[in-house]
Write a protein that binds this DNA or RNA. Sequence first.
DNA 1: GTCTATACTTTGATAGAC
DNA 2: GTCTATCAAAGTATAGAC
Lengths: 187, 187
Amino acid sequence: MPTPDARERILETATRLFDRHGVHAVGMQEIIDECGCGKNLLYSRFASKDDLVVAYLRRRVEDWEQLVADAREAAGTPAAQLVELVREAGVRATAPGARGCPLRNTVVEFPGREHPAHRVSADHFARVRTQLRELARATSAAEPDRLADRILLIIDGLYAHGPIFGEDAAKAAVEFAEDVVRAATAG
Amino acid sequence: MPTPDARERILETATRLFDRHGVHAVGMQEIIDECGCGKNLLYSRFASKDDLVVAYLRRRVEDWEQLVADAREAAGTPAAQLVELVREAGVRATAPGARGCPLRNTVVEFPGREHPAHRVSADHFARVRTQLRELARATSAAEPDRLADRILLIIDGLYAHGPIFGEDAAKAAVEFAEDVVRAATAG
DNA sequence: GTCTATACTTTGATAGAC
DNA sequence: GTCTATCAAAGTATAGAC
C-alpha cells in the first residue's frame, strides 16, 4: 500500500526549490536528493517533470485563492479588501529569498503558449482580473473595472520589484493602493 | 581580416532569439544556425554564452536610456516626461511577441546574485529608480520620490501584464500615470 | 509489495580542436 | 565549418532493503 503523504512531501520539496531557483535551474535529481526519496517513487507520483511543475503551479494558484479569502476576511468593505490584497501580496513579494511571482516567472520560463505550465499560469491571470473586477464592482467606484485594473497593475509591479527594493516597496504600494481606492470611490 | 560587423550581426540574432524565447531556451547552436556564422566566429567574438548574454543585456540597458532620452525630447515638462516614459514602455511591453521586460526576465532566469547577467540587470534597476527620482524632483510634486516610485511601479506592472492583456493595458497604464502625476503635482 | 539506491540510455547543451 | 569531448539532464530499468 503506497504511503499517502509521499506525493505531498515531494511536492513540498519541489515547491521550495522551484520558488528559490526557478524551474529550469532545478533538476529532478536535486529534488530527489533533497527529498530523500527514491527516483521510482517520484516518477510513480509525477509522470514527468512537466507534471510536477503543473502541480507546483496549481499549488501557487491555490495560494492566491487563499490570499483572496484572507483579504476578504481581514477587511470589512470591498474597498478595504482591495487594499488588503495589495498588502498580502506585498508580504509574499518581499519575503526573504522571494523572486517575484512564481506564476509570472513560469510564464517567462515557458514562453510556449501550448505548454501546460504556461497555460495554468495564463488561465490564472485571466481569472485574477475577473476576481478583482468583481470585487471592485462591489465598491462605490464609478468605474470599477478601471479601479480593478489599477490595483492589478500595482500588484504586478509589486511582485516585480519587491524582491529588489524590499519592504519599503511593499509599504509604498499599500499607500498607493489606498490613494487609488480613495480617489476611485470619492464623490 | 575579421569582418567588423560580425559581432554586431551575431548580437542582433541573439537579441532577437533571447527576447522571444528566453535565454535558457536558446542554444548557441540555434544562434549559429540562425545567424549563418561559424561556431569559431561566434566564440571569437564572445568567449562564452554568459558573455553573449551580458552583451545582450547591455544592449537592452542602452535601449532604456534611449527610451528615457526619447521621452525627455517628446514631452515639454518633467511631469509630462514621466507620463511619456509610461507610454513608451507600454509600446515595448505590448509589442507582438513581447514577453515582459528582458532585464527583469533575466533576473528571474539567473537568480544567483553573483552571476554577471544578474548583476547587470540589478544595477540597471537601481539606476532607473534614481533616474525617475531625479526626473520627479524637477516637477512641482511635494513628494517627488513617492511620485517616482509610483511611476516605476506602474512601469513594472505594465511590463509584467502587458504581454497578457495587450494594448488596453498600455492605454490604461498611461491614463493611470496621468492621474498619478496630476494628483502629485496638484495643490 | 513498497520504497531506496544506483546504473544506464538518450538527448541536447557548451565549448574547443582541427 | 565540421567534428568531437565533456557534461548535465530526463527518464527507465534493475538490484536490493524492510
